[in-house]
Amino acid sequence: MRTSIMAGVAAGTLLAAGAAAPAFAVEDGKADLSVLHGIPGLTVDVYVNGALTLDDFAPGDLAGPLSLDPGTYSVALTASDAADDSAPVLGPIDLPLAEGMSYTAVAHLMANGDPTATLFTNDISETASGEGRLTVRHTAAAPAVDVWADGAVAFSSLENPNEMMADLPAATYEAAVSLAGETDPVLGPADVPVEEGSNTIVYAWGSAADGNLALAVQSVATHTGMPAEVSAGTQGLAADGDAVPVGVIVLGAAALAAAGLATRAVLVRR
C-alpha cells in the first residue's frame, strides 16, 4: 500500500510541473515494424535473419506490427516453395530499426517495373486535437500521380518511392489517384477513414502497364497526450458530509435551501 501511495505522489509531482506524460505509440525500448507485400503475382516466404518469419506472404498482405528490439535486421524474400533463403528473389536487404520508431517495409515495384524494397518511417508524432494524419506512398510501377481527397487534389506529383502526408480533421475522405495533371482516376475513389490519434497510410502499388494498380492501406497509432486530471462534479450534491467543517455544512445547506437548484445553476459555470 505504501508503494502505491508513493507512486501517486510521484505522479502528482509531474502534474505540479505542468507536464502530463504522453502515451507512446511504441513500447518502451522497442521498434515497431510492419511489412507490406506490393509485388503483383508473386507469393513469397519472408526470412528475417535467416529464419522463416512469414510463410506464403501474398500480394496485398500486411503483416504486423511486430514489436522488435532496436537493431539491424536482414530480410530476404524467396519463392514460397523455397527450402531456405539461399536463393532470394529479393534481398537480402538490411533494415536498420531505431528505438521508439515505427516502420513499414514494403516489397514493391519501382517506377520501371523492377522489384525492390523500401523501408518507410511512419510519422507517429502526436496529432492536434480533432485531427488525424494521412500519408500517401507511391510504390507502383507508374509515373507521377496526384492524390485526390473529396474531389480536390490533396497531394500532387507524387513519385515512386516517395511519400507525402498531412494532418486533417478526423473524418472519412473519398480518396482517388490520377496520373499527375489528369482528372480521370486510375485508382479509387475509395473511402479512407482518418481518425484522431492515428496515421492512416495509403499505398498505390502494382503496375500501370500490367493493369493491376491497387490501393493498400494501414493505420498506426500515434503518440497521444493524456489528461492530467478528471474534474467530474459541479454541485457538491454527492459530497461526503461527515468530515466537512461545520461552517461549510451550514453554508451549503443554507445555500441549497434559500437559493434552490435553479438559482445555483445560474451561478455555476457550464
Binding site: 518469419t53 506472404f57 496485398g60 500486411l62 514489436s67
Partner: peptide, 18 residues
C-alpha cells in the same frame, strides 16, 4: 507482443484493406 522477428507463425497477417 512478439519479441523478435524470428518467430513461428505468430505474426498477424491480413489484407491491407480499409
Amino acid at each position: 507482443p512478439v519479441a523478435a522477428p524470428v518467430v513461428d507463425g505468430a505474426v498477424e497477417v491480413s489484407k491491407a484493406t480499409v
